[in-house]
Write a protein that binds this DNA or RNA. Structure first.
Lengths: 120, 120
DNA sequence: TTGTTCGTCAACCGTTTGGTTGAATATGCG
DNA sequence: CGCATATTCAACCAAACGGTTGACGAACAA
């Protein structure tokens, strides 16, 4: 078909739909079966299946079949490139990326269990 | 009218097109007139004008008319919401956002002119 | 005035998107 | 086996997308 696009195309396009962003938010809390992902939406299962396909092709979600059930898991690393691309434009222009990485290591290593940031 | 969409829809959709991302990269270096933005592209001026409209409606670009010429400026702050949304999903999950803000203040205040990483 | 440049508008075109429905394919259970 | 469950596939549809072209208005110069 029309040729493979830049991964950024795929990721940003996947994120441009509110249904898909909502799906990602749901998967942030837990892995889910396709049917359970579809449950809260007022659209057909097939539509959700398509959305999950788009998210999967974008690398944002991985799917593993276990028996009849296909489990969907969030793959947050796929956002990395997009985030890095965006950083070129943000107010972080002048940020030293090395220092940024160090900051993250400290933050992530320090109090893993203390942060209670699961607000809706 | 299909109603106003979530700003995240608009921003991510604007970013999902390689032409538009390239335009943003160009504007990162300098403000430009519409005609000059269009110059390096192999498509019509009208097409670029449309792309600039999409970027403007997304808040990523502002346009100011001076005489005949319409100047386009990058508005990187519009990426803020998108970036914050993405941070929920990244490897930065556990990052304390307050500490993150402090980090940025320090980084941005410390060596404003030293970093010279304009790759691309 | 006439003419040129800058940029948008309007109409059109083919392709893609996001949704529907119904059939098909697995898998599991009795 | 026969039947329900889980998920996708295929065909279809209206609407939006990304592009084109030609006409248009606004600003400047002669």
């Amino acid at each position: 078909m029309a040729g493979m696009a830049d991964p950024l195309d795929t990721v940003f396009h996947a994120l441009a739909d509110p249904t898909r962003r909502r799906i990602l938010s749901m998967l942030l809390e837990d892995d889910m079966a396709v049917t359970d992902v579809a449950a809260p939406f007022e659209m057909s299962l097939a539509a959700i299946s398509k959305h999950l396909g788009i998210l999967t092709r974008a690398g944002l979600v991985s799917q593993e079949r276990r028996g009849r059930v296909k489990w969907c898991r969030l793959e947050p690393n796929a956002l990395r490139d997009a985030r890095i691309w965006m950083q070129s434009f943000g107010q972080f222009e002048a940020v030293n990326l090395d220092a940024f990485e160090r900051f993250l290591e400290i933050e992530l290593g320090a109090d893993k269990g203390e942060t209670d940031r699961k607000g809706g």
